[in-house]
Structure formats: C-alpha cells, structure tokens
C-alpha cells in the first residue's frame, strides 16, 4: 500500500491502539482466569461426550404415544400462561410507559420513578420472578402468569416509552388547540401513532414469553416444565424427547406466526 518503503500505514492513533490493546488484554486475562479457576471435574469433562451421546440414544426414538393427554394438557397450560402473562404485563406496563415518556409526563421525578420500576422488572429473570411468586401464591400456573407478567413490564414499558417519545408532537398540539382533554389527546393524537409499535412489541414479547413459560414449571410455576421435570426425574427419556419436540414445535410455530403477523402489521 505504501508508496515508498519508508512510509508506514497507520490505521489507528496511539490512543485507539492503547484502547484496543487494553481491551484485548482484558479479554485474554478474563478467559485465562476463568478457565484456570473454574471448578470442573476432569473426569466429568473427559466422559461428557460419551454421556451426552448415551442420553441422546436413550431419547431415541421419542415415544409420541405419551403426547396425549398429559403432555398436551401441560402444553395448553403453558400457552395460557404465556398469553395471559403477556396481557397482564402489557396492562401493568402501559401506565409506567406513559410515566417514563418525557414528552408525555413532564415530571422528572415521575420519569425517574417509572424508569426505576422498568429497570427492576428487567433485571430480575422470569425464572426468579417465578420463584418469588411460587413463594407468594404457592405452586401452580397463577405464579407462572404473574412471573411472566412482571418480567414483561420492563420490556414492554421500555419499548413503549421509546415509541411514545418518538411520536410527532404536531398532531397532539392540534388536538390541544381544539380543546381536547388529556385522555382524548392520548386516544386520538398519540395512540394512532404508536399503535403499530404497540402490536409489534406485544407480539414480540408473547413470542419470548412462550419460550420462557416452558421452563417455569421447573420451579413449580405450572405449564409443561412440570411434566418435563417429572419425566427427567423418573428417567423416562422417550417421554422427555416427546416433550422437547412438543416445545420445539410450538416455539417454531409461534415464531413463524409472529413474523407473519408483524409483516402484515407494518
């Protein structure tokens, strides 16, 4: 690249190079530290592939006879948990989204408060929410619905607050000028603008919730996870395989469905 032998191609300033070097060093140090100190039993590691292969062999062929009725019922329960949890989560999230959007709520205190609620909801995983609600409601799908809902608040609330902040102020100003009250300005000026994002976010979250609600049963919060846990504890591997296939099928179907609907919405 260089025109004469004495020139050097310099891609980065010294500062950039230092930054890159530090990041690289940090990465390598972290990896070396993690590998050298992690407690992994060498015997486990050496026969892991063999054990894994053994497990897969025992799962094959999946016994589809197990599907009806118990797995089917649990799958439906999972579907209900995901859908109701999403609906409840959206209902709970909307007030916080309105409070967090700085163009709609002018109080910095309320903005911050709403952000705090949204961040807390997102920082706690739905499985941990499930543990909490199992402690509150006892084992069962009610705990699952609330776990899904509380985890969804942060996600839906954050994305909706962003959508609200992107809404054009012009139409709302025009409605203000006609003498419309606050709820009417929201209904006729803001809602039509954020409606496409709203359905997109709702569908997106439902898709995620369907995946997450499949594992809630592992901590007793209802759904197909309960059946999976039982089957694993009783070493019924063909049954486990059936359940996994059922989950896989539902998750893939939901993803296709959501992609289709979202494409039509836009």
């Amino acid at each position: 690249m260089s025109a004469t032998l004495h020139r050097e191609g310099i891609r980065h300033t010294p500062g950039q190079r230092l930054g890159r070097f530090l990041v690289t060093l940090l990465t390598v140090a972290a990896v070396v530290w993690a590998i050298r100190t992690v407690e992994i039993i060498p015997e486990f590691l050496s026969d892991a592939p063999e054990q894994m292969a053994d497990l897969l062999v025992r799962m094959w062929p999946p016994d589809l006879g197990h599907y009806y009725p118990s797995v089917h019922a649990a799958l439906m329960e999972t579907l209900h948990i995901a859908t109701l949890g999403t609906l409840l989560g959206i209902a709970l999230a909307m007030p916080f989204a309105l409070m967090a959007a700085r163009n709609i709520c002018r109080s910095v205190l309320l903005n911050t408060l709403a952000q705090l609620v949204l961040v807390s909801s997102r920082s706690v995983n739905s499985l941990v929410w499930a543990l909490i609600f199992v402690a509150v409601f006892g084992p069962g799908p009610a705990a699952g619905v609330f776990a899904i809902a509380f985890r969804s608040i942060g996600f839906v609330g954050k994305l909706m607050a962003e959508a609200l902040e992107e809404a054009h102020p012009g139409p709302v100003e025009a409605l203000t000028a006609t003498g419309a009250s606050w709820p009417l300005r929201m209904l006729k000026g803001v809602w039509p603008q954020v409606q496409p994002s709203f359905w997109g976010v709702a569908l997106f979250r439902w898709d995620i919730n369907l995946r997450e609600s499949a594992v809630l049963g592992l901590v007793g919060a209802g759904g197909i996870g309960v059946v999976l846990d039982d089957a694993i504890n009783f070493f019924q591997w063909e049954r486990v395989a059936t359940i996994l296939l059922a989950i896989l099928a539902v998750v893939l179907l939901a993803e296709i469905l959501v992609t289709r609907i979202r494409a039509r919405l836009l």
């Binding site: 992690v38 407690e39 992994i40 039993i41 486990f44 590691l45 026969d47 892991a48 054990q51 894994m52 053994d54 497990l55 499985l127 995946r211 997450e212 499949a214 594992v215 592992l218 999976l228 846990d229 694993i232 996994l244 989950i247 896989l248 998750v251 893939l252 993803e255």
Partner: peptide, 29 residues
C-alpha cells in the same frame, strides 16, 4: 442453529446436568 436457539437454555442445562453431572461444566455446555 434454529434448534439451538429454540430450546431454552435452562432446559438444555437440565439435560446436561443429567448427562454429565452437577456443576459448572453443565452450565458452560
């Protein structure tokens, strides 16, 4: 890749725990 993505990591973790035993190795896998 789609199968890896569709199975929730906690489900994968259970399977690894059953196959290769309790501990960090199953989590890593």
């Amino acid at each position: 890749i789609a199968v890896c993505r569709s199975l929730h990591y906690v489900i994968v973790a259970i399977l690894f725990v059953k196959a290769i035993g309790f501990g960090a190795l199953a989590g890593v896998a």
